[in-house]
């Protein structure tokens, strides 16, 4: 999951980034409202965390512009204001949810998970492919009855694949959803993590779930030949 955090207070932005990175999100931070569109055009975000009081352009306007330009990315509004009219305005401008400052990191991540769930095909809290389960809240995977511990990046990569079961996910998509702007292109990081995931998930099982499609990308699913 890759998140764009739009927040002008550098300390707040740093705290949010730390909290999200620890939860295996890829995070980019932007401090001005009028720069959001550029960022959204240059990378694929799974969710935008948008403050309302921003220099350049306020969050409500940013959100309206995003929607006007056809972006469906879920937006979570973040603001100190807590009066009812502001909430209504936020939602009316196209935001999907609303979080009032001050907030706890746990609430933020819970809402992000809820937003991701709303976007995905299934409303259940766990992602499921065949007998493989992934819990976004605990970051634990389970194959059959066996519980599997994942590192943050392994989790993020597996999540990206499992949100698109039986679909080809390109290297580019993986980079977009798992890494932030600091990812060095041409590195072998993806292969390294895919290898690690295979070891944890597929090694001991006859039915392999992670498939490599040469030149195209990766696919997760039971059926080998689809």
């Amino acid at each position: 999951m890759r998140v764009l955090v739009v927040e002008d207070e550098p300390r707040m932005a740093a705290l949010i980034r730390q909290g999200l990175v620890e939860e295996a999100y890829a995070v980019d931070v932007v401090g001005r409202g009028d720069e959001v569109l550029d960022w959204v055009q240059s990378a694929t975000y799974d969710v935008i965390l948008l403050d309302i009081m921003l220099p350049g352009m306020n969050g409500l306007e940013v959100c309206r512009q995003l929607r006007d330009q056809g972006y469906q990315i879920p937006v979570l509004m973040l603001t100190a204001r807590d009066t009812l009219p502001d909430k209504v305005k936020g939602l009316d401008s196209g935001a999907d949810d609303y979080l009032i400052k001050p907030f706890a990191i746990e609430e933020l991540t819970a809402r992000l998970r809820a937003l991701a769930r709303r976007e995905g095909p299934s409303k259940s809290a766990e992602l499921v492919v065949a007998d493989l389960f992934l819990n976004p809240a605990t970051k634990l995977a389970r194959r059959g009855e066996r519980s599997i511990e994942l590192t943050a990046k392994e989790y993020a990569l597996l999540e990206t694949l499992m949100r698109r079961p039986n679909q080809v996910v390109s290297r580019h998509q993986i980079i977009d959803h798992v890494w932030d702007m600091e990812f060095e292109s041409g590195s072998k990081l993806i292969e390294v993590y895919i290898h690690a995931l295979r070891k944890k998930i597929d090694e001991d099982y006859p039915v392999k779930l992670i498939h490599t499609l040469r030149g195209l990308g990766y696919r997760i699913g039971e059926d080998e030949n689809r």
Binding site: M12, L15, P102, F103, A104, E107
Partner: peptide, 10 residues
Amino acid sequence: LGFIKTQLSL
């Protein structure tokens, strides 16, 4: 206050 709350939860 927001900083403190977020830092505590973090």
